[in-house]
Design a protein around this nucleic acid. Structure first.
Lengths: 231, 231
DNA sequence: CAACTATAAAGTGTCGACACTTTTATTTTT
DNA sequence: AAAAATAAAAGTGTCGACACTTTATAGTTG
């Protein structure tokens, strides 16, 4: 079949595409602070582009809910509330489970093998620095990303990778919360991979949901604790 | 608390906002055919706007995956394949279940009552015209939309309402497939509402998932049949 | 006449300009 | 001196223009 420029050429992005990505990572990493106002002329100047190009990028960012816009009042970076983070984790639980169940059916043996190697690397990284490293933080997402890929479901991939992961990353950077229990998480990851190896979709689904849920619960607990201190 | 223009003012949309919505419904309803190329100058002229404004709308449409763009080659309306439709239903199953379980906890009694009334209307509409009416088709979505609202989870709402429902509507218009088994569907809806009334989150989740899954299975069956005829 | 090249038409990416709206600063009024 | 009115500055929404790329057309050559 002949390749058309529409099937993910990905080479030669447009300027607005690149700016979109730059701003996105800027927001996620906190270089552009959450809640801050975005002045179009100022930002356009900063990136050395025209306002029109910038506005195309902002439109996409708005659709991804990384910025909020009000007509005639401009754009602000989102501020993520505790409630929204819980919302996100709930969605992630449902979709992560779905993806993992599908992955048990659709991943190749080679892909599963690679996953196991990835976990070995994680273990080493944990032993070296108690899981505080940047690598460990992003490694968690890498693990989930591969399973997403393995699900072969484009929608679940685009929802999680295209939107939700960015928001979670943003939250992590902002409150600099690394994975709270790296060894426990690693154990759970290993169990998940076992289920994948055995092609047990139901179990894979269940384990992934439980894995994400326990992450959410530990966030909720932390929140309760910090609330007590105030009240 | 003072109201800021950023919390969903919704009054006085921008021109590009309105165009965005117009094009979206145009795509969903098939007035702008799936797979067709979009010429920016032509379309801008048709709507009586400038190309810059149009391009902002297209950027958002692209982010919603209703149009596909390739740098220097322009934009096309998506073409939805059978595989993608299955993907969508799988995601919908997972998220619909999540939303329904949450709704069992978070909907008000009044909201649940309204849901029951809605189902009564549906029953009448089915008796009158065997469920072939436009109303019946959109009514199905209305039911699901209210449960989404009731979940109080903004993310799941924005994912389903903001993106996936549009694609499903599009598919329905394109293949003019009304709900294949309206009476059965109604029965399932009633059971779901019962679970909501009893505040049984686990059951509500389960029933909703099963409800959506059976819709998917009937689509998959139809596909197999049409494949047989060819092969 | 098919295949290749050259040329014209159309289309996309990016920019700068201007009107109108909101915000900030300044002046006036009480 | 605080509040209201006014003026200035900044910012947003929308448009038209131009360079460069792709697609369509016509012409040329083997």
């Amino acid at each position: 079949m002949a390749s058309s420029p529409f099937d993910n050429d990905s080479s030669s992005l447009t300027l607005s595409d690149r700016i979109f990505e730059q701003i996105q990572t800027g927001i996620v990493k906190g270089d552009i602070p959450a809640g801050s106002k975005i002045s179009e002329p100022e930002m356009a100047k900063a990136y050395g582009i025209s306002r029109g190009t910038l506005r195309e990028a902002l439109s996409r960012l708005e659709e991804r809910q990384l910025v909020v816009r009000a007509p005639n009042h401009g754009a602000r970076v989102v501020t993520l509330s505790y409630e929204e983070l819980v919302d996100i984790y709930q969605v992630r639980e449902a979709l992560g489970g779905l993806a993992c169940g599908l992955a048990a059916r659709n991943m190749t043996d080679a892909e599963i093998d690679d996953l196991k190697k990835l976990l070995d690397e994680h273990e080493q990284s944990i032993n070296e620095d108690q899981g505080l490293s940047y690598y460990q933080q992003e490694g968690e997402l890498d693990f989930h990303y591969r399973i997403l890929q393995g699900s072969r479901n484009k929608k679940v991939l685009s929802i999680l990778d295209g939107g939700l992961y960015q928001l979670m990353r943003m939250y992590r950077y902002q409150f600099s919360t690394s994975t709270p229990r790296p060894l426990q998480a690693l154990k759970e990851h290993r169990r998940i991979v076992e289920a994948l190896e055995e092609r047990d979709a139901e179990l894979a689904d269940l384990l992934m949901r439980r894995h994400i849920r326990s992450a959410r619960l530990s966030i909720e607990e932390r929140q309760r604790n910090s609330q007590e201190q105030k009240g």
